[in-house]
Amino acid sequence: MQFASQNYFQLFSITEKFHIDLGVLASRYHELQIETHPDKFADSTEQEKLMAVQNTSILNEAYATLNSPLKRAGYLLYLHDVEVEQVNQDELAMDLLMEQLQLRESLEEISNDESAQSQLDDLKSRVRDKVERCELSFGINMEEKKYPGAKELFHELQFLHKLLSEIDTIEERRLGY
């Protein structure tokens, strides 16, 4: 079996689109794991073991990519030859930048007192709502092959996820680790 040459959607035999059934993805992933995992080759030759490690690594990467909406979005754009690594400031709409700036400010303004946790929770649910709406529009843009629009939404998702992980870091610091 050789996984290296397949696109991740083909690998799991699922239709190439943004909104996918994560339950189906997980069960296909498990089926493939059972065939390729190095544990199935514990008593085999070094060559077979190495092959198993490589195939399973690709499988794990493929699953991690499709299982995360953000990574899946980036991967779909990559499959349609949309460059997402390089971003020009003028490609991003002004109101998007302003909104991100405001969200970031509200994070910085959170006071370090007893109400901090509930303020963080509020901000988190606001950001999550935005993520949800963003994902919905991304899916529609991709279906309609509106790639520039999809790309902008992808960058917005990147901003929002970055913000969520910063909220997490602050929370973790407050929890003491």
Binding site: V53, Q54, T56, S57, I58, N60, E61, A64
Partner: peptide, 8 residues
């Protein structure tokens, strides 16, 4: 917490 084996 990345599933192993992994190559990156």
């Amino acid at each position: 917490n990345t599933t192993i084996p992994v190559i990156k």
